[in-house]
Nucleic acid binder design. Structure first.
Lengths: 146, 146
DNA sequence: AATGCAATTGCAAATCGTTTGCAACTGAGG
DNA sequence: CCTCAGTTGCAAACGATTTGCAATTGCATT
């Protein structure tokens, strides 16, 4: 079926280990997530799933996403106005730059920023559990280069 | 802590200048916002308004918030799960640290982080229109100091 | 392979925060 | 104090997500 197992985490194994049943709907959704490079929302996942198995319901997509999120297998993002979007948790931590014109999501990471965040939290007497850094912008016009 | 009129923007003047009517509901909501130090959500504003004028509706609160947001008079924040929360736009720009246990919102600002954000966006060929940086954490135990 | 039962499903209805259509009302300029 | 577009309250509509429930289905056991 699919060859390159490299970037695709073995969710089934993880789920089994967590003691959850591997049902047909879950298998379909898991396959979709494993093959996904972007940040789809529940409806998109539902639609992709429907092309494989018409009987899968949107509720099951939501329930499965919640399950996977609880296991730490995926991350849920709530970008400005709009439904939650999901992505595999397998890769390294990163933040997001959202293209306001296209809705594209670009990932980036800055150790320096993370350090500064920790520092700030510490100074305020807090310990960061998680954070959210989203940049909303638009492509710079070529002429505006400097 | 607060030196009278200084921290309270004159919304009425601003609204009038923008050509919108100063109605009784708006005056009430404006007064509440001007007197507010925290980040209330629409329902909270509605409740505070109700104690002054029972006839004010939640719809009007929402409509007024949207109006003010459009004018740039207030900022709307969508913290994790939960309704939008508002705050006056008058002060300096800042980001937020949310106490996961109490829901408290602490404001902070880091020029260094902002600079790094700009730098990152620029490198990716983007121009930041706005951003969102939220730290979610809990108070550090006194014993954990270092 | 057949059995048993809790986990899981699909569906419809419920929920939450927010927006909207509409008829009644009201601010502010004449 | 008239006029009338701007504004309101109400209820219904909305989009995203969750939930109750009865029917179904994994899967551990025979």
């Amino acid at each position: 079926m699919n060859h390159s197992a490299q970037t695709k985490p073995d969710y089934e194994r993880e789920l089994r280990r967590a003691g959850v049943r591997i049902t047909r709907p879950r298998r379909v959704i898991l396959d979709i997530l494993a093959a996904t490079e972007d940040h789809p929302d529940a409806m998109e996942i539902f639609q992709r799933a429907s092309t494989i198995d018409k009987s899968i319901s949107l509720s099951t997509v939501y329930r499965t996403m919640k399950l996977l999120e609880g296991m730490g297998a995926i991350h849920r993002h709530a970008f400005e106005g709009g439904p939650a979007r999901f992505e595999q948790a397998s890769g390294d931590h990163h933040d997001h730059l959202i293209d306001l014109d296209t809705g594209d999501v670009i990932e980036f990471h800055s150790n320096r920023i993370e350090e500064l965040q920790d520092e700030i939290a510490r100074e305020l007497g807090y310990e960061i559990v998680h954070h959210r850094l989203e940049l909303y912008g638009r492509r710079r016009k070529a002429s505006a280069r400097k």
